[in-house]
Design a protein around this nucleic acid. Structure first.
Length: 648
RNA sequence: GCUGCAGUAGCUCAGUGGUAGAGCGCGUCAUUGGUAAUGACGAGGUCGGGAGUUCAAUCCUCCCCUGCAGCACCA
């Protein structure tokens, strides 16, 4: 038998017979290490302790102290342990797949009866029993035919299908956790007892399609989270609570921003406080767009199907459109219209009015375009995913050679806006040509190259998103990361050679002939509804002062100070501050509590002392201390703070 | 859209085959207080909608609507 050299992380080298397993190496290094070991890293590959090593390699033995492999293994073994527990309790359940995901794992089952929340407790209990059994994990390599036969015999049709879908004809790996067996790539732990029994929790049951295909069977998915110890699990549960606390639906109600009701699903009733955020944001965007050379337009809501047929929406997007049929009793001719789901076709109509010259290009056309899309009911989510929304939409009509400049310009624009709105950085995804596309390859080459060059010229690193472009052209997606680490795709820039063609947009070039402009579709915040939802969750309701719907509440401490409080409010309003008086007959503690919960950034309290001195007592949200200051001085300071970032 | 769960007062939620209850909020009165809940009293609900079973339905059954979670979708 040939010998191999294994190099340990400290540089030590050891000689072994080829085919020695990683577990044997661990035990050879130290018996205790052999027991503690959970897996190995062999030439950067995550290696099961039972797998043989056949050539000279670098090797590191992993224990529970190596948190990345440990988490991976613990979650993966828990997936198997859960599937085993489920099949032990309900032998008729069919198993499918159970991968590791962020923070835990899931496993999809096929079972006629739905799982109930109570079942989760039962499964969890059985899982803990299996962990306590310290059942050994065993692995073998089987031929495909043996594996297929086995799953036929055990009546596991999903596993048979999985095997058929695995390409090539290499043999397959089987794993046993005790007597329970699953087809699995591995690696796994040594025995079930290596899983921390108090570090996991089953979280939820949900439907999931087999192989992610909505035409196939609906399975039942059980989600679990798992960590290496009880404390980390607890921390995770606390984090989930924190995330729930900043849910925009909850804060929206508490702060009186908006509501939704079943007569208008997926549409927002903006209350005064919420609408102040909306209009403040929109005013800001309008100023920025004007500065950046856009002209603002406004286009119809209800548009005849003829235009949607011409634009291609009728064909490609119809199931997402609200179709409006005009009743014959009310109209001489029966007309079929649709609420606009996008603004682009209408913008081309404006472009097409009158002859355009190359001198008119680039023409940057912006609209706060109110759109309606019939989103699937299951997709609706608060104000983040709605059926009626307004985009900060814009279309740049330009020549091909202007794409790069316009892209750069837009990225600069977007950087400024995101920074002003409290997002210091964003990431960019570049989606290139999809399989199904219009336009010939030379046009795509040009479009992608200029979009890429411009992205790089703007100093933007981007991640490639191969084949995810729109059918008419490549696109950039701009992704923000919020305060608790969640990603939100907001901005987009798409190069479109198709729509100008379909809707026959032309300009007269220097050569006196008609040419086709290119259209750049672009949005920065995306939809105001969604973006405000993001702002709320990002700030946990404590919006930046300039965006806060109520910036200052002035409260009286005694009734005799009411008149003065009103004077203070008037003085603040005169300086453009959104201030309100709270003169209710309540104790100051009560009012402070209420406005603090309402996320009002500044509370000014006035009693007789303030009346006498012409001062205010200032309390800022989140601070315990108060500060006295003169009224005029305070008004000036707050007015400065209330100024939108582009006007400072 | 699919699977599961849910819908009771403005909000959060309890409850029962014999038409309902709490806390907060709201109103009135008293209280004039110094930075996260002053006290008393009071009003408020076709128990999501429709049909069925029943002497009787908020409760059981069916259909629908809406919401929530996940999946699918997301030009």
């Amino acid at each position: 038998m040939s010998q191999i050299t294994l190099t340990l992380p400290d540089g030590n080298q050891r000689l072994y017979d080829a085919g020695i397993t990683a577990g044997e190496v661990a035990t050879d290094i130290a018996t205790s290490l052999g027991k503690k070991a959970i897996s190995a890293t062999v030439n950067d590959a995550h290696w099961d302790l039972q797998w043989p090593i056949n050539c000279d390699s670098g090797i590191a033995i992993n224990t529970m102290k190596d948190s990345a492999p440990a988490l991976e293994l613990v979650r993966h073994d828990l997936a198997h342990i859960m599937a085993r527990a489920v099949q032990e309790i309900w032998p008729d359940v069919k198993v499918t797949i159970g991968p590791v995901i962020k923070d835990g794992w899931y496993y999809d089952f096929d079972r006629a009866e739905p799982f109930t929340p109570e079942d989760l407790g039962v499964i969890e209990k059985r899982m803990k029993e299996i962990i306590n059994l310290r059942d050994p994990v065993r692995t073998e390599i089987w031929s495909r035919s043996a594996a297929t036969q086995h799953y036929h015999d055990t009546n596991e049709p999903y596993k048979v299908e999985l095997i058929e879908a695995i390409p090539g004809d290499e043999p397959l790996r089987m794993y046993w956790h005790g007597d329970w067996q699953d087809l699995c790539r591995g690696p796994h732990l040594q025995h079930t007892g290596q899983v921390p029994a108090d570090g996991f929790k089953l979280m939820s049951i949900a439907g999931a399609y087999w192989r992610g295909d909505s035409n196939r069977a609906m399975l039942q998915r059980i989600y679990g989270v798992a960590f290496l110890n009880k404390e980390s699990l607890k921390a995770h549960m606390l984090m989930l609570e924190e995330a729930a606390k900043r849910d925009h639906r909850k804060l929206g109600r508490e702060m009186g921003l908006f509501h939704m009701q079943e007569e208008a699903p997926g549409q927002v009733f903006w209350h005064p406080n919420g609408w102040r955020i909306y209009t403040t944001l929109q005013d800001y965007m309008r100023r920025q767009q004007t500065r950046d050379g856009y002209v603002e337009v406004n286009t119809p809501q209800v548009v005849d199907r003829k235009l949607w047929e011409a634009s291609g929406h009728w064909d490609k997007y119809q199931e997402n459109m609200f179709i409006v049929e005009v009743d014959e009793e009310h109209a001489r001719e029966k007309a079929i219209n649709a609420l606009k789901p996008m603004n682009c076709p209408c913008h081309v109509q404006i472009f097409n009015q009158g002859l355009k010259s190359y001198r008119d290009l680039p023409l940057r056309m912006a609209e706060f375009g109110s759109c309606n899309r019939y989103e699937p009911s299951g997709a609706l989510h608060g104000i983040m995913r709605v059926r009626g929304f307004t985009q900060d939409d814009g279309h740049i009509f330009c020549r091909e050679d202007q794409i790069e400049y316009e892209t750069k310009k837009f990225i600069n624009f977007l950087s400024t806006v995101y920074r002003d709105l409290g997002f210091e950085s964003f990431s960019v995804k570049f989606s290139d040509r999809p399989e199904q596309r219009s336009g010939d390859d030379s046009v795509w080459d040009k479009a992608e190259a200029s979009l890429k060059a411009a992205t790089e010229a703007a100093g933007c690193a981007y991640e490639l998103n191969p084949g995810e472009g729109a059918f008419y052209g490549p696109k950039l997606e701009f992704v923000l990361t919020d305060a608790i680490g969640r990603d939100w795709q907001c901005g987009t820039l798409q190069v479109d050679f198709v729509l100008p063609e379909r809707l026959d947009a032309t300009y007269i070039a220097e050569d006196g002939a008609k040419h086709r402009p290119v259209m750049l579709h672009r949005a920065c915040v995306g939809s105001f509804e969604r973006f405000i939802g993001i702002l709320i969750e990002n700030s946990a309701g404590r919006l930046p002062f300039w965006l806060a719907p109520r910036q200052v509440v002035v409260t009286s401490i005694v009734t005799d100070a009411n008149e003065y409080c009103q004077q203070v409010v008037d003085a603040l309003i005169a300086r453009g501050i959104r201030a309100e008086a709270d003169l209710r007959n309540e104790k100051i503690n009560y009012k402070v509590r209420e406005h603090s919960l309402g996320k009002v950034p500044v509370i000014l309290a006035c009693g007789m002392k303030e009346v006498a001195d012409h001062t205010v007592s200032i309390r800022r949200l989140g601070e315990k201390q108060t500060r006295m200051a003169g009224l005029d001085e305070t008004a000036i300071t707050l007015a400065l703070e209330a100024t939108p970032p582009d006007q400072v």
